[in-house]
Structure formats: structure tokens, C-alpha cells
Design a protein around this nucleic acid. Structure first.
Length: 568
DNA sequence: GATCAAGGCCAT
DNA sequence: ATGGCCTTGATC
């Protein structure tokens, strides 16, 4: 079986996505340029320290240069002369810092294109991107890459380069030599973090040695100087393997956590079964700097699953809501079949699974990711889910693609915000989560479309909805009403949209009256809140658009496509 | 001036 | 095509 990479797919047109219903091919979401220092959240568990490796006093760097080239700080520490260093802490850190190339396991020669890699993978990555190479895997796209076999399958090698986090955007389009790029500060922070980890390890080791020594003496006491913090150091030490494994994974094995979550495996399998971006990207930054995992996921979800499930989403959604518990009045037959079906079709577990899978896959093997960029990727994925949901929804699915596009272009951001509110209110989505690499990701920012200042508005909306006992049925009806907006300009089949809208509106009105008689005017109040959501979403869109215009937001995404569509 | 991550060169 | 070594140049 021969698999081939394809040429650059370009941006994802909304119409393409929608039209895929007919041919079920897989559009490729493209990639992302980003500034890794933009809105970085340095708030990780390990305090940043102002001492990069290269500031560590060594007197023997000269012996570590090769051919007159200073080989850099990272391996200076772990290099053959490290043992000669006088300071005990330097010799002790040797094991901690000696890194292997995450692609092939060869010796690391420095930071290249986003992370520590060996010289050969650096060269390979550069050649591939610069020369827009297109490779083929003659096997199953899952060839093992190590030092001895890395030459065998360039396809899988390049795929692995992307998987571990090598950044296409670090290869310069203009081929300019020298200087520094935007990743410089990230490399510096990564060095500092590694150094910090080494020191913690060393202290933990000392503490343990001390404790062992004292216990053999039949006494319990901590070493002077470290005693108050001994437990802390040990605790941090336990966390270290997760963190350090992100930058050195010679065999590319998923971390135990990822395996336990069942997340990385599924991602990797997907990435191995889909023609991937790798080379399509060349020239254009790849859709997901973090590797090929994202696109196949989206594609599979949207165009694989969706095409076969249009008839009965319920049966495929064992995770959908149990009406009896979430929809009051259903047992008494008070709820319209329309709302029943709506609610049953919801699969929030899938929503959250996709979210966490994406977050973990994007940070797997990455020492530090751009959190704004990551947020955009999540929004983008949500957007794909949104389109998928719409295309399989009653009323909407009967429309022509042009009409569908217009409706989606008009409502996507409102629906993203609404979805987030729903996830928080009904599924306990937390406000933040810790990523695979230890960074904290602000989940709430998704609901704010990346605008921190919208938090008050967001909270006020949420509070009002809570007062109204906004439930899952309300949510899904409101979502339909946002989507099926007959006011949208240029709709050809406005009658159908109008009918759909009115049916949902009527169902919601009846639902509010019958199931929530104690809440006065719930229906109209919900309508008013829709306006607020719309205004919040509009500000979010504006912000994202500005970010995009000044080059801070990923390009070639469905998200940006949507942002542009409204401004055409 | 030193650093070091880009790109380039060239023997293999 | 690969990969080890060299040159470059922005940043520290």
C-alpha cells in the first residue's frame, strides 16, 4: 500500500467543508503561524529562574567545541567534560540534562526549529521544508524511527518531526542566515526550566540520601538547609518525568498519563492512517504546529463519522443526556418530540473528549506551546464540530450549501460562546486545565473567544441564565434559533429557515411555559440574553480578527475563514 | 564580543 | 539524500 502526501491544500473554505457531505472526502485543515511568546503563560509549576545554562560557570567549554564551533550550552553540561567541572552540582546534573533527539534518539546538538534535536534531524527537517519534499511511505506510515533506521522512511521521519513539535514556521521562507527568531525566548525559558528541574532533582536526591543515612542511624531528621522543603522537592521530583519527557522522547512513547487517558494512542493511530500535512504544508505553515494529529481527528470526526450517522444520531450517542434527569417534564410527556430529539442528539462527552485530546496532543512532546495559538486551534476544532452538528441537523441539512454557509457565518461565534456556557453550566467544564507539558490552559478563554476583558460580561450572562434555570433543552433550542436565523441576508430558501426557526421557537416557548411555570417570562428573558451573547461574541470576533490582521493568530483555519467571511 | 540557531556547503 | 561542519547575524 502506498500512501502519498499531497500538495498544499490551502485554506479551508467553508463551502468545501459543507459540500463534503456529498463526496465525503477529507478536507485538510491547514496550519498556523504563531508567536510563541505571545500571551505566554509563564505560570507553570516550575519557577522561571534567570540563569540559562550558558551562564553556568564552566571553565572547559573550549574542549567541547567541535571544529571550532561552540556546541552550545545544553550539551556542554552533559558533555564528556562535565565530570571535570569542579562544582558538584554540575556533575550531578549530568544525567538530568543529557538529552536525546526526540525524533531518532541521536545526540542532541541544540535547539532546532522549536526543540532540542540532533544535527541530522535538523538538516532533514530543513531540507524537507525548504525543498517542499513529498515523501511516500511504502509501509503503514508507522515506521519506527531511530538513529540507525531514520534514513529508511523519510515520510515517517518527517511525520515524527512534526509529532514531536518541530516547527515549520521556524524554517525561513527567505532563507536568511544568522540572527535570532521568535523562538529564542522560548528556548531560553526551556533551558531555565530544565536547569530548575535538575536542581530540584539534585536536592531531592540529597534529601533522600540524607534521610537514608539518618534512618540507618536510627534517627529521623532532615538535612539542614533542606528540611523545610524536603517534601516539596520530593513531590516536584515526582512530576518531573512528565515534564522532561516532553522534550526528550527517544522512542516517541506516549507518557503514561496519555496512555491512561487513552488519548495519545488514538491520536497517533489517526495520524498514521491519514495522508498528512507534513508535506502539504510546505510553503504554508502547517495547520497544527503540534503535528498531524489534529487534522485527521477533525476530519474523521466530521467526514467519517458524520456521513454515516445522519439518520440517527441518538443511537450513536450513548453519552447523550438522559432526559428523565435533565429535562423536567419529559416523564409526563410535556416535552415536544422536537426537543426530545434535540437533546438526545447532544453528545457532550464527545465534545469534551475532543477538547482534551486536542489539548494533550498539541502539547505532547512540547516544552512550551503558545497558549493563544492553542486556544485558536481549540476554537477551530469546536467550529468543525459545530459545522458537523449543523449539517446533520433537522431543517439546516435540507438547505443548499450557500444558505448553510450564510447561516453559519452569521452564527458561529454566538454558538461557540453558547456551547461554552452550556459546557460549564451542565457539564462542569472547569475554568482551566493543566496541559501535558505542565502549562495551564485557560478553558474559560474559549468562552470569551480569547478576550480576557469579556469575563464580566460572560459571568453576567451566565448568572442570568442560572437565574432562569437555563437547562439543556433551553440550550439546544437557543442554539437552533441562533443557527436558523431568518434575518440573515441573502438566504435563498428563507421560507424553510423561517419555518425551522418558528418551530423551534414555538417548542421552546411551550417548554418554558409548561416546565418552568414558576419562572416568569422565561422565554422572553432567554431571547434577551441571546442578544447579549451575540454582542459578546461580536466583540470576540473583532478581537480575533485584529489578532489575525496583525499576524498573531493562526492562519488558514476555518476560524479565520469565518472571520473573513463576514467582512467580505 | 559572545552566543547560538538559523542557512549553506560538501564529502559521503 | 544525508549529516557533519561552517558561516551568518540578531540578540544578549
Amino acid at each position: 500500500m502506498h500512501d502519498e502526501t499531497q500538495s498544499v491544500p490551502g485554506s479551508v473554505a467553508i463551502s468545501t467543508v459543507l459540500q463534503e457531505q456529498e463526496n465525503s472526502s477529507t478536507p485538510t485543515l491547514s496550519v498556523v503561524t504563531s508567536d510563541p511568546d505571545l500571551e505566554l503563560n509563564p505560570d507553570n509549576d516550575i519557577a522561571e529562574i534567570p540563569v540559562p545554562f550558558n551562564d553556568i560557570p564552566t571553565t572547559n567549554t573550549g574542549t567541547q567545541t567541535i571544529g571550532g564551533l561552540d556546541m552550545g550550552a545544553a550539551y556542554q553540561i552533559g558533555g564528556p567534560t562535565a565530570a571535570l567541572a569542579g562544582a558538584a552540582d554540575i556533575t550531578d546534573t549530568k544525567d538530568g540534562i543529557e538529552e536525546l533527539c526526540p525524533v531518532c534518539g541521536d545526540k542532541v546538538s541544540g535547539y532546532h526549529y522549536g526543540l532540542l534535536t540532533c544535527e541530522s534531524c535538523k538538516g532533514f527537517f530543513k531540507r524537507t521544508v525548504q525543498n517542499k519534499k513529498v515523501y511516500t511511505c511504502v509501509a503503514e506510515r508507522s515506521c519506527h524511527i531511530d538513529k540507525t533506521q531514520r534514513k529508511r522512511c523519510p515520510f515517517c521521519r518527517f511525520q515524527k518531526c512534526l509529532e514531536v513539535g518541530m516547527k515549520l514556521e521556524a524554517v525561513r521562507a527567505d532563507r536568511m542566515r544568522g540572527g535570532r527568531n521568535k523562538f529564542g525566548p522560548m528556548y531560553k525559558r526551556d533551558r531555565a526550566r530544565k536547569l530548575q528541574i535538575m536542581r530540584q532533582r539534585q536536592l531531592a536526591a540529597q534529601t533522600l540520601r540524607g534521610a537514608a543515612q539518618l534512618s540507618t542511624d536510627g534517627m529521623y531528621a532532615n538535612q539542614p538547609g533542606t528540611s523545610p522543603f524536603a517534601n516539596i522537592h520530593i513531590k516536584q521530583e515526582i512530576q518531573i518525568p512528565q515534564v522532561s519527557s516532553l522534550t526528550s522522547s527517544p522512542d516517541s512513547s506516549p507518557s503514561p498519563i496519555a496512555v491512561a487517558l487513552g488519548q495519545v494512542n488514538s491520536q497517533m493511530q489517526l495520524s498514521g492512517t491519514t495522508a498528512q500535512p507534513a508535506l502539504q504544508i510546505v510553503g504554508v505553515p502547517p495547520g497544527n504546529g503540534g503535528g498531524p494529529a489534529q487534522n485527521p481527528t477533525i476530519e474523521q470526526k466530521l467526514w467519517g463519522a458524520a456521513n454515516s450517522t445522519t439518520t440517527s444520531p441518538h443511537s450513536l450517542s450513548p453519552k447523550s443526556f438522559q432526559f428523565e434527569t435533565v429535562v423536567p417534564g419529559v416523564a409526563q410527556g410535556k416535552v415536544s418530540p422536537l426537543i426530545r430529539d434535540f437533546v438526545q442528539a447532544i453528545d457532550d462527552r464527545e465534545w469534551q473528549n475532543s477538547l482534551y485530546t486536542l489539548l494533550q496532543s498539541q502539547t505532547y512532546n512540547q516544552c512550551e506551546v503558545d497558549l493563544f495559538e492553542l486556544m485558536c486551534k481549540v476554537l477551530d476544532q469546536n467550529l468543525f464540530s459545530q459545522v458537523d452538528w449543523a449539517r446533520n441537523s433537522i431543517f439546516f441539512k435540507d438547505l443548499k450549501v450557500d444558505d448553510q454557509m450564510k447561516l453559519l457565518q452569521h452564527s458561529w461565534s454566538d454558538m461557540l460562546v453558547l456551547d461554552h456556557i452550556h459546557q460549564r453550566m451542565h457539564n462542569n467544564l472547569p475554568d482551566e486545565t493543566t496541559l501535558h507539558n505542565g502549562q495551564k490552559f485557560d478553558l474559560l478563554s474559549l468562552g470569551l473567544l480569547g478576550v480576557p476583558t469579556l469575563i464580566d460580561h460572560f459571568n453576567s450572562i451566565t448568572a442570568k441564565l442560572q437565574e432562569l434555570k437555563f437547562d439543556v433543552s433551553d440550550y439546544i433550542c437557543v442554539k437552533f434559533m441562533l443557527l436558523l436565523n431568518p434575518e440573515v441576508r441573502g438566504i435563498t430558501n428563507r421560507k424553510h429557515v423561517q419555518e425551522g426557526f418558528e418551530q423551534v421557537q414555538q417548542a421552546l416557548l411551550e417548554y418554558c411555559v409548561t416546565c418552568y411555570p414558576q419562572i416568569q417570562d422565561k422565554f422572553n428573558k432567554l431571547q434577551a440574553i441571546l442578544q447579549e451573547i451575540h454582542s459578546l461574541a461580536a466583540r470576540g470576533e473583532e478581537h480575533l480578527y485584529l489578532k489575525h490582521c496583525n499576524g498573531s493568530a493562526p492562519t488558514q483555519t476555518l476560524l479565520m475563514e469565518m472571520l473573513h467571511a463576514k467582512r467580505k
